[in-house]
Amino acid sequence: MVSVEGVSRRFGSFRALEGVSLEVHPGEVFGLLGPNGAGKTTLIRILSGVLEPSEGRASVAGLDVRRQPDGVKAAIGYATQEVSVYRDLTVRENLEFRARLYLEPKAVRPAVERTLGRFGLGEFAEKLAGALSGGWRQRLALAQAVVHGPRVLFLDEPTTGLDPVSRRTIWDLIHEEARAGVSVLVTTHYMDEAERCTRLALLYGGRVLATGTPAELKALAQSQARFAFARTQATPEALRAQPGVLEAWPSGDGMRLILEPGAHPPLELAPAMPSLEDVFVVLTRQSAALLAGGAR
């Protein structure tokens, strides 16, 4: 559905993306996980036909983004970081406007009704979008992105600024879309959200550090570092100074530690399961070390 091969993008001398490759299959919720500035939004904009890649090839729904950007735009749904709804239009008017950009006039009404129903927006249909709470407005933004029945859905940080309950709802809706056969590419910097993705790509400094299911990524991290918990009063700074300790931070009544595989610091250690955040720390450290070493 989405296929990216060696895509790079430069803005002047700044390399926003560097040789990115990935594959999103039908019905998959594929997560792009990375800190701000990692290149997530740039990649989404390339895949939605807005931005041309400097190098490499990408196709969406079987269409080349460079040669058929208009076809790509018609096949996808896109929700940007900012909640992109017109606050002075009603929920229904927002949906109608978006649907009319894609669909034949006759198909607009049924598409809007279907979407209102599926997203539970029916009772708010005549309400101004500006009067909705943040969670509902985000729900509307998501509804707008799928109102025309796209085969591929790009969501750029769809839950930024939402409370946990709203986030959960939005993610349920995202998975519903995927179950209906849509390929979803979603960016996030929330690690807990990343756990909800079918597969993930870790993006850092414009490069893909690793790709896989959350479990695969954790296994990969475990093969490269030891994750542990220690009940200790020592400060993180003191612990990090210990040989073999890669990272340390307070957690509960003790410290979480990431250790080099063979390290044995003088602490009472209990093994811990790595979270995706740990995976990220391990893999980014590795990448930084590689970059510092001049290896390319």
């Binding site: 904009r45 939605s48 036909g49 807005v50 208009d70 735009k73 018609a74 996808i76 896109y78 929700a79 940007t80 900012e82 992109s84 017109y86 978006r98 950009l101 894609y102 790009f154």
Partner: peptide, 13 residues
């Protein structure tokens, strides 16, 4: 200002 343009340019319009 409302960043709507960013969304619109990703549609067929």
């Amino acid at each position: 200002e409302s960043r709507m343009m960013e969304t619109l340019i990703a549609t067929p319009v």
